[in-house]
Nucleic acid binder design. Structure first.
Length: 582
RNA sequence: GCGCCGGUGGUCUAGUGGUAGGACCUGAGCCUUCCAAGCUCAUGGCCCGGGUUCAAAUCCCGGCCGGCGCACCA
C-alpha cells in the first residue's frame, strides 16, 4: 500500500473514533493517545483474542499486577542501571553522545555507566575527551541523565521512590515465589499479563506506534533448564517467513520462506520453545487480520540483543513501507529470576526431585565462630563465606594445618581445626533450580495500528469511491449496523427492535436512521463494520430482512428469526457469508 | 535532546498586515422501496504566550504539538 496510507489511516482513526492525541484541549502532550469508542473496542477484542490463544489456549494463568513498583525491584531487574543513559551534547556540532561510551572508549575505565555523573564529567575534562562526531573538546559540557522510567513517590513527603513499570514482565517475575506455589512447584508453567507499561521516550513517533504509555501482552513461560520441550508437532507445518541474522549481514541476504519444522531441523531457529511460539504467533496474527504478505520474523543481531537474551526473534509487520516490531520472542535464560534470587530473600527457584535420591560426598565447613569472631572482627562473615566457597572448590586446601583464605585481596591464615572442615556423605533427593524463561512479548497498540493499516481499502461501488476497513469479524469493534430502509415510523420501530434483540445476543450493534441508505452503508464500511441489516416494507409480510456484507457489498435475504444465530456464527468464523444462499 | 518543515471549523484545505472562504462531514426539513443523488436551512475555525504595529491568523521571538532526519529504543 502506498506510503500515504498511513496518513489516511491516522486521519480516519481521528475522525471515526479509533485513536487520537490525548489532552489536545490543552495543547496535547507527546506520546500519549486516547483510544476512542471504536479503537477501545478493537483493542479490547484483540486482547481478548490474545487471551484465548496464549493464556486459555495454552493452559496458562493470567495475573494483573500493579503498574507502580518500588525501587528495589528495578535495582534487581537491572532497569535502574541500564535505563539511565548519560548523554553529553557537543557544544560545537550539537551531536548527542553517550558520555559513558565516550569515556569507556578512550580511557581505562570500563564501567563508566555506573559512575556518578559529576565524576564522569571530571573524567571527560581530565582526559580532554572530544566529541566522537566532530572532534571538538567536550570538557565543561554538561552531562544529562535520561531516565527512561517514570519516577514517582509512594506515600507523602519523601516517601519511598517508585517507578512505573517499563515492561509488564517484572510484575510477573517479582511474584514468582507465590506463583510457583500456585503452580504446585511444577514446571513448566506460564503466566500472562495484559497491561500498561511506561517509558519516558526521548522521542515518541508515528502516532500509536511509539508512545510513552502503551499496552503489552506478555507471556512468561517458566521451564526446566534441562528438558520441558514444546510439542513442536502442533506447529511444524506452519509456514513462516524468516529473516535470520546471517541473511541480514550477508550482502545479498534475503528472507527465507520455510516452515517451523524445517527451521528447527536446519538450526535456523536454535531454541525449540522460541520456534514453537513463532508458529503459534504467526497463526494468531493471521487470525486477527495481519496481512501475511507484510509479516515476517526477524532474528536479532548479536549487538542488538538485550543483555539477558541468548537468542531473540521479533515478529515484524510492514506499515508505511517500514518494518515495525510487533512482538519479541526471547529466551531469557535464568537472567530475571537469578537477579531477583540474588536481591531478594525469597526463593526464585523450584525444587526438582531426582528420579532416584543421590548419595553425594560434600565438603563442608562448620567454622568455630568463637575463634573467628574475635580474630577477624567485622571481617569474620566474609571469611566464613570464603571458607565455604573454598571447601566446595578445592578440598586440597584443607589438607595442611592451616588454610589460606583471600578476603578483599588480603590473605588470612586459619587453623583447619577451627574451620570444622569435613567431607560427608549425604543423600540428596533433588535440587533447587532456577527456571529458564521463554518470553513472547506482544505490543498491543502497534498491532491495532497494523491491523487498521492492513485492513485499509479503497475501491469503487457503482462508480462511486468507497473507503472501507476489512477488519476481521472476530475483532471488528462494531459488528453489525441495523437500518430502516427509509425514514418511516414503522420501519424504524421494527429496526430498533431487531437492534435490541441482536444486542441481547451479545453482539456490538449500531442503529442508524439518518439520511439515505447508501450513506449509512458507507459510514459503516469506513469504520469496518462487517455486516449491515436493513428492514424494508416487505419485512412485515415475509418476516425477512436484507443482510449486506461489507467487503463484497453483496446482499442476501434472511428470516428475522435466523439473524441472531447466523450473525453469531459469522462472528465466530463458523460460517462464511458466501455460504448463505441469496 | 538537536536539525529541517509545518500548525486555519469535526476532517481536508484556500488566503491576505485591516479579525476568514471552499469542500466533505454533522444536524433539521423536503424528496427517496437498497449503496456517499438532489434541494432548503443550520452548527462550527485562524495552537498558546510575548514582541513589532494604529491594526497580527498573517511579521519576529519563545513555548506546545505534529511529520521527517540524527541520536535513543535495556
Amino acid at each position: 500500500m502506498s506510503e500515504d496510507t498511513g496518513e489516511k489511516v491516522v486521519e480516519l482513526a481521528k475522525r471515526r473514533g479509533y485513536f487520537f492525541r490525548s489532552s489536545s484541549a490543552y495543547g496535547g502532550v507527546g506520546g500519549f493517545y486516547t483510544f476512542g469508542p471504536q479503537g477501545a473496542a478493537l483493542k479490547g477484542n484483540v486482547e481478548e483474542a490474545w487471551r484465548d490463544r496464549f493464556a486459555v489456549g495454552e493452559g496458562h494463568m493470567e495475573i494483573d499486577a500493579p503498574t507502580i513498583m518500588p525501587e528495589p525491584v528495578f535495582e534487581a531487574s537491572g532497569h535502574l542501571d541500564t535505563f539511565d543513559d548519560m548523554l553529553v551534547e557537543c557544544p560545537d556540532c550539537g551531536e548527542s553522545s553517550r558520555a559513558d561510551h565516550v569515556v569507556e572508549d578512550n580511557t581505562e575505565y570500563e564501567d563508566a555507566e555506573s559512575l556518578p555523573i559529576p565524576e564522569v564529567e571530571e573524567i571527560v575534562a581530565e582526559y580532554e575527551l572530544s566529541c566522537p562526531e566532530c572532534g571538538a573538546p567536550l570538557a565543561g559540557a554538561a552531562i544529562e541523565e535520561f531516565n527512561l522510567m517514570f519516577e514517582t513517590q509512594v506515600g507523602p513527603g519523601d516517601g519511598q521512590p517508585g517507578y512505573l513499570r517499563p515492561e509488564t514482565a517484572q510484575g510477573i517475575f517479582v511474584e514468582f515465589p507465590r506463583l510457583k506455589e500456585y503452580a504446585r512447584g511444577q514446571l513448566p508453567f506460564g503466566v500472562t499479563q495484559v497491561g500498561r507499561a511506561y517509558r519516558n521516550e526521548i522521542s515518541p513517533r508515528r502516532s500509536i506506534i511509539r508512545t510513552r504509555e502503551f499496552t503489552q501482552a506478555e507471556l512468561e513461560l517458566f521451564v526446566d533448564p534441562e528438558g520441558d520441550g514444546p510439542d513442536l508437532s502442533a506447529v511444524e507445518d506452519v509456514p513462516v517467513r524468516l529473516y535470520p541474522a546471517s541473511e541480514q549481514q550477508a550482502d545479498e541476504g534475503d528472507e527465507v520462506e520455510t516452515t517451523v519444522g524445517e527451521a528447527v531441523a536446519d538450526g535456523t531457529i536454535a531454541d525449540p520453545w522460541v520456534a514453537y511460539f513463532l508458529g503459534v504467533a504467526r497463526e494468531w496474527y493471521e487470525s486477527v487480520g495481519v496481512d501475511m504478505d507484510r509479516f515476517r520474523f526477524r532474528q536479532h543481531l548479536a549487538g542488538e540483543r538485550a543483555h539477558y537474551a541468548a537468542d531473540c526473534w521479533d515478529a515484524e509487520g510492514e506499515v508505511g513501507g517500514n518494518w515495525i516490531e510487533l512482538a519479541g520472542f526471547a529466551h531469557r535464560g535464568d537472567y530475571d529470576l537469578s537477579k531477583h534470587q540474588a536481591h531478594s530473600d525469597e526463593r526464585f527457584t523450584v525444587f526438582r526431585q531426582y528420579d532416584e535420591p543421590k548419595t553425594v560426598e560434600r565438603a563442608e565447613v562448620d567454622p568455630d565462630m568463637s575463634y573467628l569472631g574475635p580474630e577477624f572482627g567485622g571481617d569474620a562473615g566474609d571469611v566464613v563465606s570464603g571458607l565455604e566457597e573454598l571447601a566446595e572448590r578445592d578440598r586440597a586446601a584443607f589438607e595442611d594445618e592451616t588454610v589460606t583464605v583471600e578476603v578483599d585481596g588480603e590473605s588470612h591464615e586459619i587453623p583447619v581445626e577451627k574451620t570444622g572442615f569435613a567431607v560427608e556423605e549425604r543423600t540428596e533427593s533433588g535440587e533447587h533450580v532456577v527456571p529458564h524463561v521463554i518470553e513472547p512479548s506482544f505490543g498491543v497498540d502497534r498491532l491495532v495500528y497494523t491491523i487498521l493499516e492492513h485492513a485499509y481499502r479503497e475501491d469503487e461501488v457503482d462508480s462511486e469511491e468507497r473507503t472501507y476497513l476489512e477488519v476481521d469479524p472476530e475483532v471488528a469493534p462494531t459488528f453489525v449496523g441495523v437500518f430502516p430502509l427509509q425514514s418511516d415510523a414503522e420501519l424504524e420501530s421494527e429496526a430498533e427492535g431487531i437492534a435490541a434483540s441482536l444486542r441481547a445476543e451479545g453482539l456490538s450493534v449500531t442503529y442508524d436512521d439518518s439520511g439515505a441508505i447508501g450513506r449509512r452503508y458507507r459510514r459503516q464500511d469506513e469504520v469496518g463494520t462487517p455486516f449491515c441489516v436493513t428492514v424494508d416494507y416487505e419485512s412485515r409480510e415475509d418476516g425477512a430482512v436484507t443482510l449486506r456484507e461489507r467487503d463484497s457489498t453483496d446482499q442476501v435475504r434472511l428470516p428475522i428469526d435466523d439473524l441472531p444465530g447466523t450473525l453469531s456464527a459469522l462472528r465466530e468464523g463458523d460460517l462464511e457469508f458466501g455460504e448463505l444462499s441469496g
